[in-house]
């Protein structure tokens, strides 16, 4: 249309593309790291249903609404749902994975400090979605 040169725009687009490549590479690397489940992680089965969480440890003990884990161990959550979609979330440990009926989704973490953390549902699941909460207790290792 107009007779001016376009090199500033080309440089600008180049910078944007370079930035996006950098973002993609960094994100890819970080995702690869957090998705790699360490061997020997203890499995905890997480069941979401309207409107509470149930946890089943490897040794068969079940907990409702609260989850006790030991610090320094790795845990792998196997998450599924009995009714509608939920999303299992421990925000302090940046854990988030949808609980979807008919599927088992996994996510892992290794608690580092003793303490209490909120567990919540982050996917809309109906009437009491806002109060579908629980507590994570990280305790000293028993052995």
């Amino acid at each position: 249309m107009s007779g001016h040169s376009n090199w500033p725009e080309w440089i600008y687009v180049g910078v944007v593309i370079a930035l996006m490549v950098w973002v993609g590479a960094e994100a890819w690397e970080a995702e690869r790291l957090v998705e790699h489940v360490p061997e020997g992680a203890e499995i905890i089965k997480v069941t979401g249903q309207q409107w509470f969480w149930t946890f089943e440890h490897e040794d068969g003990t079940k907990e409702i609404g609260e989850l006790h884990v030991e610090k320094g161990k790795a845990y792998k959550f196997e998450i599924h749902s009995k009714d509608v979609n939920h999303s299992f979330n421990i925000h302090d440990y940046v854990i988030l994975m949808d609980a979807i009926p008919g599927r088992v989704n996994t996510v892992w973490f290794a608690p580092t400090d003793v303490g209490e953390h909120d567990i919540q549902c982050r996917e809309y699941c109906g009437l009491i979605h806002y109060n579908m909460r629980g507590t994570l207790y990280v305790e000293e290792p028993s052995s």
Binding site: E26, A27, E29, A30, R32, L33, V34, H36, P38, A74, D92, Y93, V94, I95, F109, A110, T112
Partner: peptide, 21 residues
């Protein structure tokens, strides 16, 4: 990329990775 999670018994802290990013 090569250093992370290399030592046995040491687990990667996802909080560090994600919040760093």
């Amino acid at each position: 990329a090569f250093a992370a999670g290399a030592e046995p018994g040491e687990y990667l802290d996802r909080r560090v990775v994600i919040w760093n990013l």
